[in-house]
Design a protein around this nucleic acid. Structure first.
Lengths: 251, 251
DNA sequence: CGGCTGCTTGAGGACTATCAAATTAGGTGG
DNA sequence: CCACCTAATTTGATAGTCCTCAAGCAGCCG
């Protein structure tokens, strides 16, 4: 699964234009946000016409690769996507993890090529939006333009969150609290969830050694804050975690 | 200069509509970029009508403050602007430094308030763009929308640059190389320039202790890479610096 | 069952922060 | 113009956090 074109089309994606289809895709949360930005039903219909549902992808599949020509952003509809770059020395740098409802590809707009790889960590479904088309639509639909500006702007702030010189424990806490909130916002449990990424990926993302991740998790478990069993996590004392993460999350 | 409203208006800013004014303001480089995105002269004129030239501000002046209602982005026309947040423990976190031609306030679009403070480090002049107005214009002028998307997207990538776990020497090299390039792009010398920010600000921005900044600068000077005299810097061996910074700048 | 990969645990060392103090620069008033 | 005061910067000594290296362990799949 390595040299397929970016966002390979599945079997011809014919979008039905009925209420069901609209309702279904609104689970991608992008439409919801657009609605709240003042888009009306007809504009929403225009938006859905230019959506392609792609997937499923499987763990390890590449969704797009650094250097691929940029032509689309995508909303994660199911699963978890890792974005990363490989530097000249062959070292990986994990940029982020993306869950259902979140958009990938926004950092590609500045250039004409994707600046990073996107890799499925489990079974992933996407909603693919042609960027040229959505741009044109955005000129007609102010609510859509506003939502795009909002998404882009929010990612600027997010990117600088982990940039501080926080302790390993604070980073881990912020990571877990962030995960918990994002999953909870999609209707999943806020206190019990699975880590779809490896310890190595977490470590890389948090700029820690894998050994440190392991040690911090053990410490938090010994303190009764967490219960960890392989990739299953239970937040036993969310308040304590929030307190640790507070300076990073700025609250 | 502490409790003035954000972007205080100077004496009534009447913009002449003649060629001179257009030419002058194009030094803010925003217009240049818009032109290259396919905007025509008449659109550019529309853009300039909604610009307010504000300033001068002086070192230490606050341009906007975290929590101020967001209504405008601004292009730095002269001087250097620091953006920062103060966390609950009263500790400062420098988010970035912004030079002529660069835009501040983009990270405020996601909310209705500025998420950080902006502070003049020396004598600063701004071009202020009402965001509601520029948004409306962007729906009519695709080139402007494209440029805004591009600026936002680029900042996402920039924000994650320094997030890695780089050594103090690498961070400092990347900082200096970045400064050199940005200044060179505006026609200033790429090898000799002034640091408009204090050591403490540099340290804070790079997530280092001020003492470490001092030591790294000395080391680089002893190695003949730099010549530092207070806030004057000369890059004596730009290639060596580039080599140090390469993994951070991804080249 | 054996190999493999991913995770955990332990010991030692490197880098940078912290603390303390000397030095220098800049601004102010005489 | 100079002396003084304050803040910024530099320098030195020490300590802490986290990385690196190395080995042991556990789940997963053929």
């Amino acid at each position: 699964m390595s040299s397929q074109p970016p966002f390979p089309r599945p079997a011809p994606t014919v979008l039905s234009d009925d209420g069901d289809e609209l309702q279904f895709c609104s689970t991608c949360a992008f439409s919801h946000a657009c609605l709240s930005q003042g888009m009306d039903k007809s504009a929403l219909r225009d938006l859905h016409v230019l959506v392609e549902h792609v997937g499923p992808f499987h763990a390890g599949d590449t969704l797009f690769r650094e250097g691929d020509p940029f032509d689309a952003i995508a909303a994660v509809r199911a699963g978890c996507v890792k974005t990363r770059v490989i530097d000249r020395d062959g070292r990986e740098h994990v940029l982020g993890f993306h869950f259902p409802g979140e958009i990938i590809g926004l950092n590609a707009i500045a250039g004409d090529r994707y600046p990073c790889d996107a890799i499925a960590l489990d079974t992933v479904m996407l909603c693919r939006f042609s960027f040229p088309k959505i741009s044109v639509l955005a000129t007609r639909v102010p609510g859509l333009q506003r939502e795009l500006f909002r998404l882009l702007s929010r990612d600027i702030g997010r990117a600088s969150l982990l940039a501080g010189d926080w302790s390993a424990e604070q980073r881990m806490a912020a990571f877990l609290v962030g995960l918990s909130r994002r999953l909870a916002a999609r209707g999943f449990s806020a206190t019990r969830f699975q880590l779809s990424m490896s310890r190595t990926d977490i470590a890389n993302y948090l700029r820690l050694a894998p050994e440190t991740v392991s040690r911090v998790l053990r410490r938090l478990q010994d303190e009764g804050v967490l219960a960890v069993d392989r990739r299953d996590v239970e937040l036993r004392d969310p308040d304590a975690l929030e307190a640790l993460a507070a300076p990073i999350l700025r609250e």
